[in-house]
Structure formats: C-alpha cells, structure tokens
Simulated scan of single mutants.
Amino acid sequence: MINPQAQIQIRARLDEISIARQFVLEMGRQAGLDEKSLHHCQLAVDEACTNIIEHGYGEATDSDQTISLTCSYGKRNFTIEIVDSGIRFDPLIHITPDPTNELTQREPGGWGLYFIKELMDDVHYEYRDARNHLTLTKLLPAPGAAQTNRKGNSHQVVVTGLADNLEVFELTGAIDSQASQKLEQQLVERITTGRKYLVLDMAGVDHISSGGLKMLVAVWKRAHDVKGDLALAGLQPPLLEVMKMIGFDLVLKIFDSQESAISHYVD
C-alpha cells in the first residue's frame, strides 16, 4: 500500500512560510496528528524554512530560489521532507543553546535548531544531488486521540491603553519571524513614549517562532531598562509548553488571563 503523500513548493521568502505551515497543518490533520503534535510540526517547519531563507540562501535569495516540502504518512509516522539548494548545512552537527542559562546571558541564535531537535521524534539530514534534504518525523497518536480544527491565522494586534504607563496588546494569529519584527517596533515605540508596563494577551495566538521568542526577550530587556516590565497572558497550552521548554516561565510574568495580568500592575 502506497502511503498518502503531497508536495508544495514555496519561494524562498519569509512571507511564504505561512503557506508551508498551513500545508503541514492540513496534511498533519489528515494523518491524524493531535493538536500538540500539529503545533510541533508547524514550529519545526517554520524554523527550518527560516534558517534556509536567512542562512542557506542569505543575500543570494531571489524569486527563482525555492523550498520544496513533501508530507507523507502511514500507520505510525507523519514525515516532512524539506529540500533546498542553498549552501550545504547539516543542523544535526551544530550545538544548540542551553535553556538553563540566564535569559540575559543567552546567545540570540540557535533556538530554531533547538526546537527542531526537541519537538520532532526523529530528524535526518542528507546532502544529495547538490541539495539539502531535511527529514522530520512525528509519531502518530493512538487511534481516537482528539484532533483540532485550528487554522493558521494571519497576525493582528489590538491595543488598549489602561493607564499612563500601562498598555495591553491583544494579539491573534501567528507571531513568526516577519510579524515579530513589526511587533517589536510597536512595543519598543510604546516603551519609549512612557508605556513601560506592557501586557501581551496571547489567547488568540496559535503559533510563535524562535524569531518571536527573541522579540519577547528584546522587548523585556527594553522594559526593564526603564524600570518597567513585560507580561504574557492567556497562553494556549502549545505555546506555554514552548515557553517552559526554554525557561521563559521562570523569568517572564505569565498570567492565566488578561484580567489577572492587569490586576497585578494596577492594584
């Protein structure tokens, strides 16, 4: 019996990664992955594609350069093969960051590879026919496990000012590398205008990349430089899992809801 398989090709651009995430989401759902595993696969693919675009192709990126993704599944495994023609790069031989280090002492890079290795059940690399072949495997859950109808939403922001120095950002969709750049500019701008206490309501966020996590660290540092703070609220279980994996829950204030976060600063 031939396993179900599908393939897409995206241009090597950051704004095309959402297409890859949606493709993996749809194929993973067909394969029977649960919500947690779907999030793992989407995050791993986001990180792999971002690395290819920023480092594999780098400044040489043009409209002709592409990334190919093939998803297939059988009774036990869901497999994603990512192929590119950028510089030869084996992620398995590179040392990943230590999540036990203090937040202020951590190097900014390497977290994408950390997530790929930690979240997938198997990772295989091969350089063949002058192309990088990265194969990611996720074990399928037991029959009858709950699935999700979650969709890959675009990023949106709603801002509410509650006090002279406190502001709430209600975020929805995906905070990937592209969205995090714009969001960091917004948050830093608010800090410089005196809103030194920021609450990010992330109840509507279904995905955050390592670029988004680096953005949180940068904004947290800027807030602390002016004796302020950055807090997160309403994190969905998959995102909370990622935060705990790298020790963010030990440094950043994380609240169950926007209301509890606001009460912490207002009261």
Rank of each mutant, 00 (worst) to 15 (best):
L240K: 12
L92E: 07
A233T: 02
A261R: 02
M202C: 10
D98G: 03
G161A: 15
H224E: 07
P4T: 05
I8T: 03
D15N: 12
F78S: 00
H207Y: 14
N101L: 15
L166I: 15
S209Y: 05
N149W: 11
R21T: 08
L14C: 00
R190S: 08
P108Y: 13
A44I: 06
G173F: 11
F115R: 00
L69F: 05
F169E: 00
I67P: 00
G58S: 03
V251C: 07
Q5Y: 10
E118I: 12
Y73Q: 03
V168W: 07
I80M: 09
N51P: 01
T79Q: 10
L183C: 02
K182P: 01
E189R: 15
S85F: 12
D64W: 13
T100N: 06
N149K: 11
R150Q: 13
G212D: 01
R76H: 10
M202G: 00
E170T: 14
D90L: 06
R222K: 13
W111L: 07
L136T: 02
A174N: 08
T70D: 02
L38A: 01
G144Q: 08
H40G: 00
I95N: 09
V266S: 12
S68H: 10
A231N: 00
R222E: 09
G204M: 10
L213E: 04
S257W: 09
T172F: 14
Q156V: 09
Q236F: 08
D64E: 10
R131L: 11
F89Y: 08
R11P: 00
T137V: 12
E118H: 12
V199C: 04
T61D: 03
L252I: 12
R195L: 15
L69M: 05
D46S: 04
L250N: 09
L198K: 05
H55R: 12
T79C: 09
D229E: 11
V219L: 06
V251T: 06
K196V: 08
V157H: 05
P238M: 09
L232I: 02
F78P: 00
G56C: 04
L25E: 02
Q147S: 10
D90W: 08
K151F: 09
L166Y: 07
R128H: 14
R131A: 13
I95K: 15
D201M: 05
F169Y: 15
P91L: 11
L183G: 00
T96W: 11
Q105T: 08
I2K: 04
K227T: 05
I208M: 14
L183M: 09
I80A: 03
D121F: 11
L43R: 06
L69P: 00
S37T: 08
F255G: 00
D121L: 08
Q181E: 05
I52D: 00
I52R: 01
G173D: 01
D34Q: 03
G58R: 08
R11Y: 04
R13N: 02
L136K: 06
M120S: 07
R131Y: 14
N153I: 13
Q65Y: 12
L134G: 01
E241L: 13
L136F: 14
E184I: 09
L25T: 02
V205F: 11
G152R: 14
S210L: 12
K75I: 04
E259K: 12
